[in-house]
Design a protein around this nucleic acid. Sequence first.
RNA 1: GCCGCGGUAGUAUAGCCCGGCCUAGUAUGCGGGCCUGUCGAGCCCGUGACCCGGGUUCAAAUCCCGGCCGCGGCGCCA
Length: 432
Amino acid sequence: MKYRTHLSSEINESMAGQEVIIAGWIHLKRDLGGKKFLIIRDKDGYIQVVINKKEQPELAELFYELTPESAVSVRGIVKLDKRAPNGYEIIPKEIIVHSRARAPLPLDVSGKVPADIDTRLRERVLDLRREESRAYFKIISVALRAIREELYRRGFIEIFTPKIIATATEGGAALFPVAYFGKEAYLAQSPQLYKELMAGAFERVFEIAPAWRAEESDTPYHLAEFISIDIEMAFADYNTVMEILENIVYRAVKAVKEECTKELNIINYEPPEVKLPLKRFKYTEVVKILQEAGFDIKVGDDIGTPELREFHKIIGEELFFIIDWPSEAKPFYTMPKKDDERFTESFDLNWKFLELASGSTRIHVKDLLIKRLKEKGLNPESFRYFLKWFDYGMPPHAGWGMGLGRFALMLTGARNIREVTLFPRDKKRLTP
RNA sequence: GCCGCGGUAGUAUAGCCCGGCCUAGUAUGCGGGCCUGUCGAGCCCGUGACCCGGGUUCAAAUCCCGGCCGCGGCGCCA
């Protein structure tokens, strides 16, 4: 017997009388004695199987051995019945149990009893059979496709840069050391330096790949391992790449709203409306507004989470840019503003209080780069292999990086980045 | 790392303030029984739990201390 001839989504009323084989998991069992109902779940949905005890005593007997979440194939006849969900159901001739699930389950997949996120992450594979969890990842996948399409449309090519690196990319963040054939190496915290070099070859590149941070961060929007969406573009400044970013956000949200109506309905969420162009607030304006709101903040300080929460409330915008950050708050490769060197051609994209993406015009002049490295207390010598290529025609360029998980929080309304990460890695979690 | 709250059957919770009425309640699951249209099926019977260690007390799920773990807020953090 074949595993399957039809998905639940491929069966309809016009197939009455036809024999089909469906496959999936036992989602629910309802035993009324003479009639026994099985709800089979596959990747697209659910379909009901009805066993009549009198007519099919062997199958009625088998029914008792079927445990929830067992993987099965059911061969049977499609039958119209207005009492059935969707108006049709399967009258089985044969039920094959591919894999019997142990009972009881460590987690209720059917949605009757809620579980804490900690329990759900421990039992993640079963958790990912819940329709809410699957909806999250379908939405993320649709968004990613839209992002890729928009970048390809704009002449970007997708690249992969090394994830095992010799030196710290930017100094700041703590890295995970890797034992590398007797040498000291690290997991990349960002593709930053490599993507800049690649903009010097391909002009327009993007990468969607993991990055690692060994920070102490313990919040609902930080992970030790996360997927970063990065672009870098030659002959462009921060205004150009900001425009690309907001268009990508627009496209992704549009695609999700159009293609994921079922999933959004399951999670009962509507992503924010994206009105282009997004508002751009100068860093100094933001500081001023926060000072007026009573915060103890001065020019040069980073803007903390409580401040961002309040700022979002004051301006009443869900999605907005904060631009022209002071150089203290940005990495060494960020281009200073031409008219005022204390500030930079840089931006953060925020959803409410959450930083989704940040980017800038990059410095393409070697001497300036070395000067900025020193000012940041970094040793130019350890960036030798990066800096040498700036001797050979490095074009002006700009780019940004966006955390996929954080973007997914906006797309799904999930409260914790662990929800939208299959197997999150944080300070305490290394398994599963 | 700091602050707050929490840890009770497989899962989710009540009980904790005000120690004894707790042989720890409920839902769901699981086992058994009844039931031929369920769709959160229903009804009956059963099953299964106080995070770890120390202390106070005649008596601790309940109060105190320490640890571990979780969640949230912050910090750290292109």
